[in-house]
Design a protein around this nucleic acid. Structure first.
Lengths: 201, 201
DNA sequence: TAGATTCTGGACTGGCTGGTCCATTTTTGC
DNA sequence: GCAAAAATGGACCAGCCAGTCCAGAATCTA
């Protein structure tokens, strides 16, 4: 917020804190993470934390939220806007599964919007809302391309299908985190497209 | 856990605490609720809280989790095991939407399994896992009945469809809580069945 | 080089809140 | 009616942790 001047070194430290906090949150969840944990992981002092994030814990979490959403949106955009064939969809679907498996069935974002976190941090929630809208738009564009390529029935309501797909993904991830199983996610991903498929590849 | 003797009066107080805690959690989220809030709402003292829940906060939350999951499962079972026609499905779908709207787009359960809560309270998480499995089974039975009634294509993979449906519901609720909109939930519910429908009613 | 600015470290504080403890009152069972 | 058991009220404690503060080191700028 405040237009403060940061030296290169300062900028570096700031980034290190965001990355460390991000990792810490992924592992333990927002509520669970203590400033001390972040200090330990990033080898910083309390003075530094409040120097770079005068708003304290809340501002830091907000920065992490921004960082993670931007990252995720970038990756999804890159993957989905290239859709031109059924194989592309399959690749993306598989990549999603692998991505989460590689992270031990955790999600860097879902921990950020636990039901109550939003109430306490409206700014972070706003970021999440915007992120979801953007992701949905990207999903819609991907589906539109698939439809254009003839992989989906011509009468598919793309925006609505994208909404359902996003819900399926989120629920799949939630259930993955809760149950430790990934089959809800795969089932949701598969249903979203195969049900509307015009023909088998 | 401990086989303690409760007088009718005691049992009544215990129930009052669970109900009050449940309402408080619905409104503010698990992490946000303080014992003091529950005491105020239920007109009880700290002595009573620890008298009925020797395990303290954690035991109380566990009791609430058990209470809410049992309640939800009862309602869903009642609704879904009666499925005999397409109209039944429509009624259930509409009822789901109305139910959440009536609660101000909140969910008594989703707040209980925020990503990190599970790590801190494995017992509550286990209850949630079991609940999800049961709900999914009930959904599967509902779909099976629909298929038997000829409302769904005969080749629908019911267990997998149920998994996808559950994911869609959870994600829809999550997005409802986050964004304040209910259209993801409706899109997920509708897609799950309409895509597989054999014919229009 | 010198003064200003930024960066870093860490001791300290204040409030919050879960949990303990016990005295008192009410209910139970005989 | 009367012990015993259960229920209730609330004062008190202790640990945790975000946030404050300031002194000193490093870095920039002129």
């Amino acid at each position: 917020m405040a237009a403060r001047t940061l030296t290169p070194k300062g900028e570096q430290t700031r980034q290190r804190i965001i990355l460390g906090a991000s990792a810490e949150i992924l592992e333990s969840g927002v509520e669970e993470v203590r400033l001390e944990d972040i200090m330990a992981r990033t080898a910083t002092s309390k003075g530094q934390l409040f120097h770079y994030f005068p708003g304290g814990r809340e501002e830091l979490v907000l920065a992490v939220t921004r960082h993670e959403t931007a990252q995720a949106l970038r990756e999804q955009t890159e993957a989905l806007l290239g859709f031109e064939s059924w194989a592309d969809w399959q690749r993306w679907r598989d990549a999603m599964v692998v991505w989460y498996q590689g992270r031990g069935l955790r999600c860097p974002l879902l921990g950020l919007l636990s039901a109550d976190a939003g109430r306490r941090m409206p700014e972070a929630q706003a970021v999440m809302v915007e992120f979801m809208a953007n992701w949905q738009a990207v999903l819609a564009e991907g589906l539109r391309r698939l439809r254009a390529a003839g992989c989906l029935a011509a009468d598919v309501d793309v925006p609505r299908a994208a909404a359902a797909l996003l819900a399926g993904i989120q629920g799949g991830i939630l259930l993955m985190i809760t149950t430790g199983r990934i089959d809800h996610l795969t089932a949701a991903l598969d249903q979203s497209a195969t049900a509307r498929r015009t023909s088998t590849s």
